[in-house]
């Protein structure tokens, strides 16, 4: 969908030799599976941090459910990435034994949760993108990716719905909730640009969905300006290191541990 791609597998180069120097839109299926898998994995970990801390019990359950969907997609994508890489790394090795420079997720998903408005702003920007992306990948010539995307797109629709409801409710709520929602959107908006480094054609449909939600919420779309980048080549914010420390500590202390 975004120009030529070679399938991974035999003769594939290791992660360390892949950073930088690539023109937009040309990535291998391995890189795609790894990057999208990392997006879902890190988003799942961040959402799971809300467990027992959400504003009410229904929300606690909702965020845990969305995290679980993301984790499910992450496991499928990372397992596939490991097979394409052909170095014997499974989902656990990829999730728990890589350092921050080896992660390929966009920076948007690693940012700290902040208040509830920041979490909903992040979820809206991410889930609308994921839904469009999975819809498009569902007809990919790569059957495995198409299968994973065909499954995940139906789940993404629920995530979009949930985030939209909250953005509207907060944006069109009290003076305080509106202030927080606007501040949150302004803070995370710059990070949305990175979503379209690999899939520039998705930005127009993405914007039209986002605009619709923001209009209903009575919020202005933040201006485009600063566009932080680097996640897809392994350059991350400090927030990812802290997240990984938390996520990986058990597996690193007790390699191969199971419940």
């Amino acid at each position: 969908m975004t120009g030529p791609e070679r399938s991974g597998g035999a003769g594939h180069q290791g992660l360390s030799s892949q950073a930088g120097g690539r023109s937009g839109g040309r990535m291998t299926t391995f890189e795609k599976a790894l990057g999208l898998g990392d997006d879902a994995l890190i988003a799942a970990q961040r959402l799971a941090e809300w467990c027992s801390r959400a504003p009410d019990m229904e929300e606690d359950i909702a965020l845990a459910n969305i995290a679980l969907d993301q984790l499910g997609a992450a496991r499928l994508l990372l397992t596939y990435a490991g097979e394409l890489e052909g170095r014997g790394r499974g989902e656990d090795e990829l999730a728990f034994l890589r350092d921050d420079r080896e992660f390929r997720n966009v920076q948007l998903v690693e940012l700290a949760n902040g208040d509830f408005a920041v979490t909903m702003a992040k979820l809206l920007l991410l889930s609308v993108y994921q839904r469009l992306l999975y819809e498009s990948l569902a007809s990919s010539s790569d059957e495995r990716l198409a299968g994973i995307a065909g499954k995940a797109r139906k789940e993404s629709a629920y995530h979009v719905d949930h985030a939209s409801l909250w953005v509207v409710r907060l944006g069109d709520g009290t003076e305080e909730s509106r202030r927080r929602m606007r501040t949150a959107l302004d803070a995370v908006w710059p990070y949305s640009h990175e979503l379209f480094e690999w899939y520039p054609e998705l930005r127009a449909p993405w914007l039209s969905v986002i605009d619709e939600v923001l209009t209903e919420a009575g919020l202005a779309r933040p201006a485009d300006g600063w566009a932080p980048t680097g996640g897809r080549s392994g350059v991350h914010t400090e927030a990812l290191s802290r997240l990984l420390a938390d996520m990986q500590v058990l597996h690193r202390a007790h390699p191969g541990v199971t419940w």
Partner: peptide, 13 residues
């Protein structure tokens, strides 16, 4: 509908 997400991934409340 009280919540789009229920006690398991497949249920709403």
């Amino acid at each position: 509908e009280l919540s789009r997400f229920g006690s398991t991934a497949c249920k709403s409340l």
